[in-house]
Amino acid sequence: MVLVFAENSDGNFKKSTLEAVSYAAEVAKSNGSTVVAVSIGKVEDSKLSELGKYGADKVVQINHGAVEAFVAEVYAKALIQLAKQHDAKIVVLSNTYTGKSLAPRVAAGLKAAVVSGVISLPETQNGFVVRKGVFSGKAFADVQLNTETKVLAITPNTFTLTTFDKSAEIIIADGGVSAADAISKPVEVSKVTGKIPLTEAEVVVSAGRGMKGPENWGMIEELADLLGAATACSKPVSDMHWRPHSEHVGQTGITIKPNLYIAVGISGAIQHLAGVSSSKVIVAINKDPEAPFFKAADYGIVGDAFEVLPKIIDAAKKMKAAAN
């Protein structure tokens, strides 16, 4: 049996969760087993049964006072208990902050090998091998998991959704956890609203020192808004506090793999490229024709950001108007 953690965000399943369920379904298909999704916290029944559409056979719902807020030690305990109860051989999670808090704890509880940042389905010809990104995007590693039970945290935006014509059966469970299991206590959660989280964004507009100062980010935000994109930045820009650290992509920042990455005024140092080189399509805009980014890009415009951006923004506006 394949167990998948169906992470919700304020009662909704994000695309990364549906990807994890689809991934679990693919794994289950190849070894002839079934998929049990585990949802923790408050989610409407209709949304739970809809996980069947993405491949879940059953959905175990844990929704009581002790799991109202995310507490890693509590959620992990519930997942470990359910994995043992259902004799799960493979546990799938999404490689989000939440998923990454849980995957290692679940693995330790099950004495299971664990790989995070997985970007391939398992190869089972010769052992059980999955691929992951290493050296912050500079390379890939094929990792063999040598234990009977395995835990995989899969990278968002990597697997396509497969749909099935079924509805998942909902099973209510308590997960064997109570309020007494929570040692850490969430005090306050502040979510950035109306913005697309960088790690989940399919399009990212990123800018560097070429923007000359934080006051010029209006154009970047406008373009991102038009393209439904998240905004990102280079290391020097976050070091100078022009933009928050949370936007810094690169080797010591966040590694992302959107469908489209547009880099404006970023030269393309090796550390930056490491964090973005898995993007499907890369566009580099830089006034220096020798900028290393052009070697890593699919499309390039050699020109000043202040000249190029207004033209692109105009074109994006026109495209949006035509689409409406």
Partner: peptide
């Protein structure tokens, strides 16, 4: 529990397609 059995480097990009700056608006298209 787990061991790396092999490494691989990302495929090299096929080469950049440059768009002249005066046609920058074509990028969206």
């Amino acid at each position: 529990y787990a061991a790396t059995v092999g490494y691989d480097l990302p495929a090299a990009k096929g080469g950049v397609k440059l768009i002249p700056v005066e046609q920058a608006d074509q990028l969206i298209n």
